[in-house]
Amino acid sequence: MEPYTRPFWESLRDGTVLIHACESCDERFFPPSPICPHCHSTDVDWAETTGRGTLYSFTRTHATATAFDDELVIGLVELADGPKLLAPIDASYDALEIGDDVRIEAAEYDVEHDRGWLEGYPFFAARPLD
């Protein structure tokens, strides 16, 4: 059996952010899953997005798990295509406001955190758009 989410990470490496679309209820959702969380149909498939969205909220940590920098800028991004996801924000905290236009893009992952089978894959980050 293949990890269900592998296409997301393969596609991210090639520069495209994939989410999931339900053929039955037409909702878009994330994280990807073989069962639609809106209507529970299994008639679901991958859908491409532009990765564009807006900043729904954000924070800056001052302490976290051992492998990470103490100060991390993290936010919730509401994709133009619907679902929200949590992402590292590639910007300084003080420069951000709720509603800012951002885009989810692939980002090199260099933290000593065990991602299991995803070792070697990029992660993602939200970058502000001007």
Binding site: T61, T64, A65, F68, D69, L72, P88
Partner: peptide, 8 residues
């Protein structure tokens, strides 16, 4: 992998 915390 982002480094989330509960206060965050």
């Amino acid at each position: 992998p982002i480094g989330m915390t509960v206060p965050a």
